[in-house]
Nucleic acid binder design. Structure first.
Length: 671
DNA sequence: GCGATCAGTT
DNA sequence: CACAACTGATCGC
């Protein structure tokens, strides 16, 4: 649970993930992801009033987060005041103090955080140095090294401070199986069960949180599963019997495998995702643990493990690191004690490790007895004793295209945001729950862990530990841009007035290297700031935004076709598929049966379901969301989505409306 | 009645 | 096992 208070020492005029108290005075707000503990005060009357008075205050977040947020009526008042910023697109924001007129420029870059759909880290660059706020994150070892925009000229950027997700920053959480490992284990368990008969089903018993989309997507892809969602919090505005084909089972009986009124008995196992960890020396065991006759716990984590945190931080090697979270059972001091040795300041004062080779940037790496072990540490495997570890090549020139101002995504069809049943859902809640808990809790916490798989017809062999890393990303998609020599952001120019030249229309430098958009005092027009030789001219991929007021109406023309998203995390296909599986929030009434062949079917009575299709029952609570920023590699044939497509995806992601799941990802681009 | 907070639950 | 979110009780406005 984040205990970050919202402000960073270097840039106190902005607030991140906190919107109360001091933060009410912020010049700009940032939201890393849509989890409640990062949204404190976001819909409080105090902030609402502030918005009404301070027309230049905006909230910046990823496009997916924006959609997720706006799907809830409670946050709808933000609609005109949110500016979504594309992932990995450095964007300049003018922070204006409305009282004094004082202005500060800052460049923010959103980096995928791998925590939940839309989750990002914020990299801020400005007069007070470069700082990184991670929000909540789960990044595998080495992933920071693959993030191009954490680098500059082939080196990791000079980062002053990192505000770090330290949820598992405790040696007891030394290792958490990777998503790939966990997925493999779950896949195997699911496979071993559902292949037994058409009536063997799996109930994925997820708690109220979104972030499981990675799991669902992969499961549905792997098995072409039909998925029936059990919206425990009452998103079903229908009679239970209507939700699922009658010839199969009674909706409310599904999770427990009780024989349906009419005929067929289902054999159900429940799989409950939960975090499992392993100490440094602990032999990793199975990522699946049997907890009962027909219940399993499967490893799944939204946060980086202790070793992943250390890998991340030591790679970034900031001057300072501040914990955003104090894990249970530990103290701030203990966490800082862990973080400190990974920071540059510490290494400089007491170098524990003498560099043996060439460094592009002075950076020592300490030897931590409890950490340096076997294959986990790749520090010394490389030819150079202290490898740079960044994998950003000296790319060929890739001229950035004109990035439009990103608030264009404000222009969404209202109807997409208006999910059905948001009012009804509430009233259905009770009865649905009643139906639901009617089932015996096959995953009850009281169940003992069963060391030996129970026998019987329904007994799947426990899957073996998975060693395969199924999540090896295709990193080449990261390397297409060329800004190798583009370090200008590291030495961010002093906050100069954007200066003379102002043009009413979007402008792109002739050499394509730099496009700067800055909205000045006028709320009606957009101006180009010629940055001249201030260092800006080499800032490819930088979008300039102002936190000042813009009218929504003028932005649409800015977007059309001019923006070019990165492939990496914006995999439209996977988002779409995830979307299919995740009707949005409490506002969706649909129960979708999704077949691999296509037509997502809102299950209604009498709909025939082919027998050979398996059913995977998903139970989540209402806030489950679509999509994921997880390490889903780009499919080789994936194309760059167009702006319209992306917009469509973001909307769908947030609303969770049924999206036709055509054959595979690529086809989704064509909707 | 609403929101904030805390404790307990899942 | 934690996490994120929910529920209910309490308190103050």
């Amino acid at each position: 649970m984040s205990s970050f208070q919202g402000q960073m020492a270097e840039y106190p005029s902005i607030s991140i993930d906190r919107f109360d108290r001091e933060n009410l005075r912020a010049r700009a707000y940032f939201l890393s992801h849509c989890h409640k503990d990062h949204m404190k005060g976001l819909r409080a009357p105090a902030l609402k009033r502030r918005l009404e008075c301070s027309l230049k205050v905006y909230l910046y977040c990823s496009p997916v987060t924006k959609e997720l947020l706006l799907t809830s009526p409670k946050y709808r008042f933000w609609e005109k005041r949110i500016i979504s910023i594309e992932i990995e697109t450095p964007t300049q924001i003018s922070l204006v103090d409305e009282a004094s007129g004082e202005k500060e420029e800052i460049v923010v870059t959103l980096l995928p955080a791998g925590h939940c759909p839309g989750s990002v880290m914020f990299l801020f660059q400005g007069d007070n140095g470069t700082v990184l706020y991670t929000g909540d994150f789960r990044l595998a070892k080495g992933e920071a090294a693959r993030m191009e925009l954490l680098h500059c000229g082939g080196r990791v950027k000079d980062i002053q401070s990192v505000y770090l997700d330290t949820t598992f920053c405790d040696p007891k959480f030394y290792q958490i199986p990777s998503r790939g490992e966990c997925l493999s284990g779950i896949l195997e368990l699911v496979r071993s069960w559902i292949t037994r008969s058409p009536y063997h089903v799996v109930w994925l018993n997820c708690k109220a949180a979104y972030g499981y989309e990675y799991l669902f997507t992969n499961l549905s892809e792997e098995f072409g599963l039909q998925m029936v969602q059990c919206w425990a919090l009452g998103t079903l505005g229908r009679e239970p019997g209507v939700c699922v084909a009658e010839e199969y089972f009674q909706w409310n009986k599904l999770p427990c495998g009780i024989t349906s009124k009419n005929r067929i008995s289902l054999h159900t196992i429940s799989i409950k995702p939960s975090t499992m960890w392993f100490g440094e020396r602990t032999r990793k065991t199975n990522v699946i643990v049997r907890t009962g006759e027909s219940s399993y716990r499967a490893c799944f984590s939204f946060h980086s493990s202790y070793s992943e945190i250390k890998d991340f931080l030591s790679y970034i090697s900031p001057v300072n690191a501040y914990p955003n979270v104090i894990p249970m059972g530990t103290t701030v001091d203990k966490v800082i004690e862990i973080l400190k040795p990974l920071c540059r300041s510490s290494q400089n004062t007491e170098p524990k490790y003498k560099p043996l080779g060439q460094l592009k940037r002075a950076r020592t790496t300490h030897l931590d007895s409890e950490e340096e072990e076997e294959e986990e540490n790749d520090l010394f495997d490389d030819p150079l004793p202290v490898p740079l570890r960044h994998k950003v090549p000296n790319q060929q020139t890739h001229h950035p295209e004109v990035f439009p101002m990103t608030e264009v995504s404000q222009n969404q069809p209202e109807n997409l945001r208006q999910s059905t049943g948001c009012i009804k859902a509430k009233s259905m809640k009770t009865s649905l729950w009643a139906n639901f808990i009617d089932c015996e809790e096959s995953n009850s916490e009281s169940e003992e862990e069963l060391p030996i798989p129970a026998s019987g017809q329904g007994d799947p062999s426990p899957p073996h530990q998975q060693k395969t890393d199924v999540e090896v990303p295709q990193w080449d998609v990261f390397f297409k841009r060329n800004d190798d020599t583009d370090c200008s952001l590291e030495n961010f120019p002093s906050s100069t007035e954007a200066g003379g030249s102002q043009s009413p229309k979007l402008f792109s430098d002739s050499d394509g290297e730099s496009t700067h958009i800055s909205s000045q005092n006028s709320s009606q027009s957009t101006h180009i700031s010629e940055q001249g030789s201030q260092g800006w001219d080499s800032q490819s991929d930088t979008v300039l935004l102002s936190s000042q007021e813009r009218n929504g109406g003028d932005s649409s023309s800015m977007n059309k076709g001019s923006y070019r998203p990165r492939v990496k995390e914006n995999l439209p296909g996977s988002q779409m598929e995830q979307n299919v599986l995740f009707p949005k929030d409490t506002y969706s009434e649909d129960v979708n049966v999704v077949s691999s062949a296509g037509e997502p079917t809102t299950v209604s009575s009498g709909k025939h379901i082919p027998q050979e299709r398996k059913l995977l029952t998903l139970s989540t609570n209402a806030d489950s969301q679509s999509s994921s920023d997880f390490e889903i590699p780009a499919t080789p044939e994936a194309e760059l989505p167009k702006q319209e497509h992306l917009q469509y995806l973001y909307e769908k992601l947030a609303t969770g409306e049924s999206i036709v799941l055509k054959k595979r990802k690529s086809s989704l681009l064509d909707t």
